[in-house]
Amino acid sequence: MTVLDLPVALDDRPLPRRVGLVALATDHTTEVDFAVLPPRGIGVYATRIPFANPVTPDRLAAMAGDVTRAAALILPDEPLDAVVYSCTSASVVIGDEAVRDAIRAGKPGTRAITPISAGFAALRALGADRITLLTPYTPQTTRPMADCFEAGGFALQGVSCLNLTDDRDMARMSHATITDAARAALVPGSQALFLSCTAVRAAGIAGRIEDAVGVPVVTSNLATLWAAMRACGDGGAALSGQLMRLP
């Protein structure tokens, strides 16, 4: 074996920007959707948080104590531009500000992003305050979501759900099913459709859904991608949909 006596030059970072991702143990979708970021010079560094189906308020709330620990595991002692907690319904059940506080406790000084905080910001950027809400959840899990949107100042024109209890099944829904559900759910007078759940494979087909329903579509992962990109100073379009074309 030869030990090369050469100077080793070190770059400051392997990629200029970096985003931490806290995904559920059962998540099939978020890391795939966030794969659009590394080619743009934004590294995605993921960890997993314990979660056990079914998707119920009690099971979602059980994640609260693990958020800080999960965030702290992402590149310890190194700064991140943002950390995304990738569960929409848990952000509602635990409390959106509580989740973001827990992220910041694990990674002080970072931009903490949830699907709810990003979704609200995205809808406001689109000028939409009258919306239709569509979830894959049961009515029991959807109701707190609807209450959260109303408390956030949005007028819900309609609320629909698909009554699924397992986020792995939510991730297996076909693009055709998602589009058909959006078309069936949209209520006239809505300025946008919010499609909840980071497990649902909707971010990559937002433009197709918009063609079907005729209004802007914001999905959980599309919103967090949009927010994470802006936290990294990237204002370009990574996926289809009107949100990604905003200046």
Results as ranks from 00 to 15, higher is better:
100 R>A: 01
202 A>S: 14
11 D>E: 15
139 P>R: 09
165 T>R: 12
207 G>D: 06
156 L>D: 03
228 A>R: 01
22 V>F: 10
211 D>L: 13
175 H>T: 13
38 P>I: 03
90 A>D: 03
106 G>V: 04
72 A>G: 05
95 G>W: 12
161 C>I: 05
33 D>R: 04
230 R>N: 01
207 G>R: 02
102 A>H: 12
75 L>Q: 13
91 S>H: 00
185 A>N: 04
162 L>W: 04
246 L>Q: 13
214 G>W: 11
196 S>R: 06
92 V>S: 08
157 Q>N: 15
174 S>L: 00
135 T>I: 06
73 L>F: 11
191 Q>V: 00
201 R>C: 08
110 T>E: 00
141 T>S: 13
246 L>G: 05
234 D>R: 02
222 L>T: 13
92 V>L: 09
93 V>W: 00
111 R>N: 14
224 T>R: 07
113 I>A: 06
197 C>K: 03
5 D>Q: 15
110 T>G: 01
141 T>W: 04
221 N>Q: 07
41 G>P: 10
104 R>H: 08
71 A>G: 07
83 V>M: 05
200 V>C: 07
1 M>H: 14
242 Q>I: 06
139 P>S: 07
145 M>Y: 15
83 V>S: 04
153 G>A: 06
231 A>S: 06
234 D>F: 13
239 L>N: 00
206 A>T: 14
27 D>T: 08
39 P>Y: 10
133 L>K: 02
227 A>L: 05
93 V>F: 01
49 I>W: 05
126 L>F: 07
158 G>H: 14
208 R>H: 13
157 Q>G: 15
180 D>C: 05
161 C>P: 06
69 R>F: 14
9 A>C: 01
227 A>W: 03
149 F>E: 02
207 G>L: 03
15 L>Y: 10
175 H>L: 12
129 D>N: 14
160 S>L: 08
69 R>A: 15
185 A>K: 01
202 A>M: 03
24 L>Q: 06
183 R>G: 10
85 Y>N: 09
61 A>C: 06
63 M>F: 11
224 T>K: 07
164 L>G: 02
165 T>C: 07
2 T>P: 12
52 A>Y: 08
8 V>I: 14
175 H>R: 15
36 V>I: 11
71 A>V: 08
150 E>S: 14
4 L>F: 15
162 L>N: 02
44 V>L: 13
94 I>N: 10
118 A>W: 02
235 G>Y: 04
160 S>T: 13
62 A>K: 09
226 W>C: 01
204 G>Q: 11
145 M>G: 15
167 D>K: 09
64 A>C: 09
144 P>G: 01
19 V>E: 01
44 V>D: 10
71 A>Y: 04
75 L>G: 08
22 V>K: 05
133 L>F: 13
206 A>Y: 09
74 I>Q: 00
1 M>G: 15
50 P>K: 09
87 C>N: 14
144 P>Q: 01
49 I>L: 14
220 S>N: 05
132 T>K: 02
8 V>T: 11
233 G>T: 04
76 P>S: 04
86 S>M: 03
120 F>R: 14
210 E>N: 06
88 T>C: 05
69 R>I: 12
187 V>R: 14
141 T>A: 15
34 F>H: 06
119 G>V: 10
41 G>A: 11
